[in-house]
Amino acid sequence: MTRLCLTALKRLSVLSLTAVALAGTLVTTSAAADEWQPTRPVSYIAPANPGGGWDTLIRTTANVIRKEGLADQNFAAINIPGGGGAVAWAQIARDSRNDHMLFAASPPIILVPLAGTSRFNHRDFQPVARLITDYSIVLVKADSPYQTANELFEAIRENPGLSVAGGSAAGSMDHISIAGAAAAYGLNAASVNYIAFSGGGEAMTALLGGHVAAVITGAGEASSQLQGGQLRALAVSSPERIAGSLEHVPTYLEQDIDYTFDIWRGIMAPKDMSPAAVSYYENLYQRMMETDSWKEATARLGWLDAYQTSDEFGEFLDAQLEQFSSVLSDLGMLR
């Protein structure tokens, strides 16, 4: 029953929003009328189960696109979980000419193939647009002796047993992020004693209980933890300080560690999608990110806009590949 009244409510708001948006979008769509348009619903794939980062990106963008009436066709969210994304990538790669298929991507599309568990890497797909980013953040307990990232790394140099926990497997995002920072500081990347937990929450509990010395996690996730006053953030991997509740957290760069790390999220497509379709979607996302619904959603989810066009995104991905493979080879984990 709630469903009913909720959808009714939603309909209402959609109606009013589209009415407002209509005037704006009419101009743009008519200008692009002779160009490529989707002719059937777009398969909009999250290579993971409902609830994760990719899924949230897919469902949120699909909602905004529908709400703002940016596309004539529906963007149908489909979950293809498994293998940290590898199952979905294999399916998408098989359908390489599909103009009606998009999927969410983030660093694992580079890391998972490097670790040898996916045959397909980012070069087997067509970048469409980078949308948002998050950064990683190093936390210690409030009563920890370490005040800065330098102190932490110095302590690791003296005692390589010092444990740093993260919420993902060895060789994946959290591990690469802290090992890369250590390497930038001048340590051997392999000297970080990284302890893998099966989720950021469990890693955080271990830190609160004093079982590990530090935790590496996403800045968005951590902002809630920091408010409690039980934890202290040593460094964030962004190029500049993040506005808002994390404003007081210094970057690595400020602490003379030449290091940034993006937890970016973007949209990619099958490799041989027609250029016209790619530029259609590229423009679509650019317009989407200017809408109010999008701004409202990012504010709520703590996302930071980081739009890149298809070409920029492709170059960025190649640079990421280099960064990650150098860290992984320092760790001896390159396969």
Binding site: G51, G199, G201, S224, Q225, G228, L301
Partner: peptide
């Protein structure tokens, strides 16, 4: 603590954050 103990509570935490509530000691 603001720490999810299971997959289900992790989703609940996510939902709370989206609604602008930060679970935790405060």
């Amino acid at each position: 603590l603001g720490v999810p103990g299971s997959g289900t509570t992790a989703v609940l935490l996510g939902a709370l954050l989206v609604m602008g509530v930060t679970p935790g000691p405060m």
